[in-house]
Design a protein around this nucleic acid. Structure first.
Lengths: 120, 120
DNA sequence: GGCAACGGTATCCAGAGTGGTACTACGGCA
DNA sequence: TGCCGTAGTACCACTCTGGATACCGTTGCC
């Protein structure tokens, strides 16, 4: 993923969206932020399995892509709040659709869940 | 991507969708197949930059996930036709939305295209 | 003084994903 | 007999993602 953006315009723009959204935790983060502003630790607890490093990296990429905003409060225990930007909020229909499709797909093909290693 | 599906159900189902759609060429392939049935070579020519190996693998994964069907015609020059299944066609609204969002995003943030290496 | 909480960063590492090249089987054609 | 096209497969290599672990600075608490 994240190949050369120069060639992407020849193709369909779905790849642009996938470049921005195609991280292990990005859509999960975005969906959490639809609920409201979250602190770093809240996101970490809300996303079981994510490491600090990954969360940091995904948040930084989302911020660089303009989907979320990062507000640092210069307090003694550092407090950093993440919120969706307007660009991030514009993904609501897409994430909703992906979520409902994913749910429908999971119900339609339940045998996929029987393989604990996914499919290498 | 493609982590353990066992944990995914705790989270939102967007990850299931991303598991299925999160390949370099998958959405591009799907969008081509919305036009109609394609042969292997047609897809290869329609997707500049894809290698035979990658196309084969992405097609096999899409087939394993039930999004496309593969029909082999036992002819002398081998002929294999790929088409969307009903499951694949159910992605039409999502790919349309992703495409229009990607287009809008590209127009909103044109400076992203100025970096030829993406953003390592 | 030592430890914890917060929000990270640095370093190292494994594996998935992706890509290039070469090679295959098959029949048609020159 | 050798070469072409089709639809791949095999092997090798590389990049990038994702993860584990350790560490940082600050302040409050014991």
């Amino acid at each position: 993923m994240r190949g050369s953006p120069g060639e992407i315009q020849d193709q369909c723009a779905v790849e642009i969206a996938m470049e921005v959204l195609g991280g292990r935790w990005k859509l999960a983060i975005i969906r959490k932020l639809f609920i409201g502003t979250h602190r770093f630790g809240e996101l970490r607890r809300a996303l079981p399995g994510v490491t600090q490093r990954m969360l940091t990296r995904q948040l930084r990429e989302l911020e660089a892509d303009g989907l979320i905003s990062r507000t640092v409060h210069a307090e003694v225990p550092p407090r950093v709040e993440y919120a969706l930007t307007d660009t991030g909020r514009s993904l609501e229909r897409i994430t909703d659709l992906l979520d409902s499709w994913g749910r429908w797909y999971r119900d339609t093909r339940p045998h996929r869940d029987e393989n604990p290693v996914g499919r290498a």
